[in-house]
Amino acid sequence: MTRVWRWLADRWVMGVALLVLGYLSLPIMVVAGLSFNRPSSRLSYDFDEFTLDNWRNPCATSDMCDAVVRSVQIGFIATVVATVVGTLMAFALVRHRFRGRSGINLLIFLPMATPELVMGTSLLALFVSAGVPQGFWTVVIAHVMFCVSFVVVTVKARLAGMDRRLEEAAMDLYASEWQTFRLVTLPLVLPGIVAAALLAFSLSFDDFIITNFNAGTTVTFPMYVWGAAQRGIPPQVNVIGTAMFVIALLLVGVSSLRGRRARRARIMSAVRPNGPS
C-alpha cells in the first residue's frame, strides 16, 4: 500500500504536467485532425471521411489564399518596420539620458494596456478625420503601432542586461564606434531582436479586432476565417492553421537544437583540453 502511495507521490507532478499539456494542445490536435476531413456539408464540424485533398489543394477557395498572402505581407512589413523602429527606441531609452525619457518609458506600455477595441475605434476615427482611405496600408500602420511596444520591451530587457564594459573593451581594442556595434553590441543583442521580430509577426498575423476596424475592403486571414465561420468554414482553413503551427514548431525546434549542439560542442571541448583547435 505504501509502495503505491510512494509511486503516486513520485509521479503526480508529472501527471499534472501531462494533463496541462493535453489541455493546451487539444484544440490544435482537433484542428490538425479536421484538416484531413471531408465534411459532408458546409456546416458540419464532424469528422466524416479521411482525405488528403485539403492538403493537396489548400487554395480551393482562392479568396482564402489571397487573405493568407495578404496577412503574410502585412505581417512582414509590420514586423520589419516595428523591429527597426522599436530596436532604435530601445537603444535610445537604455543608452541615453534625455528629457522625457521616463515619460516615454510609460507611454510604451500604453498600446499593451489599452483594450484593442478602444485602439481600433480611435485609430479608425483618426484615419477618417484625416481623410485617409482605409485599406492595406492603414492596417500596416495599425499593426506597426501595437507591435512597436512589444519590440521595445523585449529588446530593452536584453540591452539592459548587457555589460557596457564589453563595448569599452572593443573600443580599447581599436574597434571604431561602428565596428563595436557590428562586432560586439549587435551579436549580443541579436537574440533579443529576433525574439521581438517573431513576437511582432505572430501578433500581426492573428490580429482581428484592430484590423477589422481599419481594413476597409481589405481582407486578412483572421477576417476571412471570421467571415467564413458564418457560412461554414472550408476545411482548408484547418490546413493553414496546422501548417502555421508546424512552421512555428520547426522554428522553435531548430533554435533549441542549435543551442543544444553548441552547448554540447563546448562541453566536449571542455572535457578534452586537447580538443579541436
Binding site: R165, L166, E168, M171, D172, Y174, V184, L188
Partner: peptide, 18 residues
C-alpha cells in the same frame, strides 16, 4: 578616441567577449 590610442586595458571584470 580610445581606439586611436596605443594603449590597451585589462578590465577588472575581464570583459571578455562571450
Amino acid at each position: 578616441r580610445p581606439y586611436k590610442r596605443p594603449v590597451n586595458t585589462v578590465f577588472q571584470s575581464y570583459a571578455l567577449f562571450p
